[in-house]
Design a protein around this nucleic acid. Structure first.
Ligand SMILES: [Mn+2]
Ligand SMILES: [Mn+2]
Ligand SMILES: [Mn+2]
Ligand SMILES: [Mn+2]
Lengths: 160, 160
DNA sequence: TCCAAAGTGTAGCCTTGGCTACAAATCGCT
DNA sequence: AGCGATTTGTAGCCAAGGCTACACTTTGGA
């Protein structure tokens, strides 16, 4: 699942007794970080589908499996299987030969994801990353940007 | 595989005839972006292992499967299977009950990955992301930071 | 109208990266 | 030296996300 607003992103650092540092993080800390990164990765594909479907519906009007597949650069069979997963997760509805539509939850997800995508690209541009690199790298990075980090990005952009 | 320095990261934008924009990217462009993001993701795990093994060897001296597993927050069986893949890819050597060591290629990869990790964390901190969020999000974002973007990050940090 | 092209769906295959359960080897302490 | 705890390895399971091949709808143009 992808709940709209899960627990607080980053609880306080907890261990203020930092000897001197430069050393490795504590074992449980590191394990937690890797675990969260894995979790984030697990939602990445669904996020990209939701965003893409919203864009297709908004611009052209149609979000057919083939369109989606071509945009993502995968086979249509792959797209169809992922769409099945989106259905299972309650993010889209789709009847055979009838195209794909977003549910309430799907719309909400797409909105958040698109907004985040834009901010990430903007931030990259703002620190001097060339446009195409920014667009490219944002496509992967965005899925690992927490609410905390997103907020910091927005502040930075506004204050600049 | 993970070649040290693949093709140029971002060939020129190619299509300077941008009508007015705000619309979706061209289909082949978008497909290429998603494809590269998938490619980057495929190396992420190997990169994390290489970095972690290097850190363990540097600090304590030993990089045993159990240590690695605990640090990553996965079962030791999972770690052992991934170590087998690292061996296959020529990044580490490991003989039963003898710990894991990096090959030349593994060292090289670990070095690049660690350097990139540090720059990404620094950049995040520099734009106002709190430390723990920076550390957390960098763990996932780093794998999608191209050389072009990394260079921009470094310039930004130096110039600041 | 009807038939070929385009789109859709299904089946079957593969790899990766998780897991648990169990068996074997090694280590460390008395 | 021996034995229990730890570490390591193996087997077997699963889901996700790729793919190709093939069959079935639907659509649109002659
Ligand atoms: Mn994306
Ligand atoms: Mn995106
Ligand atoms: Mn990482
Ligand atoms: Mn890292």
């Amino acid at each position: 699942m992808i709940s709209p607003r899960p627990q607080p992103d980053h609880p306080q650092p907890d261990h203020p007794e930092s000897d001197h540092n430069d050393a490795m993080p504590e074992e449980p800390t590191q394990a937690r970080r890797f675990g969260k990164a894995r979790t984030a990765q697990a939602s990445a594909l669904l996020e990209d589908y939701a965003e893409l479907i919203a864009d297709l519906l908004a611009s052209g009007g149609e979000a057919r499996p083939t369109d989606i597949a071509r945009r993502l650069g995968v086979s249509h069979a792959t797209a169809i299987k992922t769409i099945a997963r989106l259905k299972r997760e309650g993010l889209v509805t789709a009847r055979p030969y009838r195209g794909v539509f977003l549910t309430e939850a799907g719309e909400a997800l797409a909105g958040r994801v698109k907004a985040r995508h834009l901010v990430v690209v903007e931030l990259l541009r703002a620190v001097g990353v060339p446009s195409e690199a920014a667009e490219q790298d944002a496509e992967g990075m965005e899925h690992h940007v927490s609410d905390t980090t997103l907020a910091a990005f927005s502040r930075f952009l506004k204050a600049r």
